[in-house]
Design a protein around this nucleic acid. Structure first.
Lengths: 193, 193
DNA sequence: GCCCCATCTTGCCAATTGGCAAGAAATGAA
DNA sequence: TTCATTTCTTGCCAATTGGCAAGATGGGGC
């Protein structure tokens, strides 16, 4: 149980000094989430700003017909939270579930604000995290409305092949915005090339 | 040329006091953007944190084949910037163009950071802005991958009918992720109901 | 080993969307 | 007004994706 990975992560952003990183890291608490358990459940207020050290998670919501839709995928080395719920203190519409046994470090909303207040460097880090998440979502949005399902599949396969080891094809299909039937067919066509 | 709308906007968030709002507003500079002119051009670094007081704008990017894709729509009373470019000081991939004669108030990146540094209340406001943009994009993403083009059209018509007065159907089509031909057909079907 | 259950694939057909080109309608300039 | 240009609609057909149900596959428990 050491926080080296988190410290390295903070330092690699080039936004926080070593001494600041150490002070930040001191606040984080250890967390273990066994496979299939939830880090966050829809209806609750997201209150943990989590750094995922080991394992994989997915986020999912429900569409207007009540079907489960995978909205995101979390790999080790990422900050994980439901932004809107966490910062607005509102009930989350999303669930965050462990796909494998997971391990990480978290602080509460209270602790985060305390750190934001006392450490400008951590504020910078927090902003960087938000901006990064925002940009990635924007890229995904552009791909989604401009490319075909097959192109989106190819793109995912190229940029994030690891997903296919962790998440069922059904979940990947809903993440891509298609049915599992279509994904299966696309994979068949794709493997011929 | 007065900044009342901006002041009201700040106060309505319930995040800034009147005295803080007045101090913030003092920093903003007036800006006029005639119809069809660009507020931001792809390749440039977004350096204006703009409050749009009058007029409408759209943001657009280019897909992998080089086609123009409308990625967003800006109405009066919104903060307008290319988040990633502005905060990371990187070249924007997006353009922001006036659809009508526009008028607003802006501060530079430099000024924004100065205000963030001296006024915690403005930091709160800045965070609120980012979180709001993020949540809206997430909602749009969920709609995009779960609903049909017709449902997305109906949704847009319901939540933002004003767009249809400002933006061409071709631009609205690319915003919805379909061709103008399909949108035309969808509108025809839709008007029968 | 065997069975059960969830996941994945496939076949059939329908619905949605795209591509292209021609024509209609609206807009703007002179 | 007239003309030119852009925008929008429509017809035809092809490609993509969905819905459903049956069958194949594979992993976990006993």
């Amino acid at each position: 149980m050491d926080k080296e990975t988190l410290t390295t992560f903070l330092l690699n952003t080039n936004l926080v000094s070593l001494s600041a990183a150490q002070e930040i890291v001191r606040q984080f608490n250890h967390k273990i989430i066994p496979k299939n358990q939830f880090h966050l459940t829809a209806g609750k207020i997201s209150d943990q700003y989590l750094f995922l050290e080991k394992g994989y998670m997915r986020t999912f919501a429900h569409d207007t017909e009540g079907n489960e839709v995978t909205t995101g995928f979390c790999s080790p080395g990422q900050i994980i939270l439901e932004v809107s719920s966490f910062f607005n203190r509102t009930r989350s519409k999303e669930n965050i579930q462990a796909l494998t046994d997971c391990e990480g470090w978290y602080i509460t909303y209270e602790q985060l604000n305390q750190l934001f207040h006392t450490l400008p460097e951590f504020r910078e880090f927090g902003r960087w995290t938000l901006v990064k998440g925002f940009s990635e979502l924007k890229n995904r949005m552009l791909l989604t409305i401009t490319e075909t399902a097959e192109e989106r599949y190819a793109h995912l396969l190229k940029t994030n092949p690891g997903i296919f080891q962790q998440m069922s094809l059904k979940n990947i299909a809903s993440y891509l915005g298609i049915t599992d039937t279509s994904l299966s067919r696309i994979r068949k066509e794709f493997s011929k090339k």
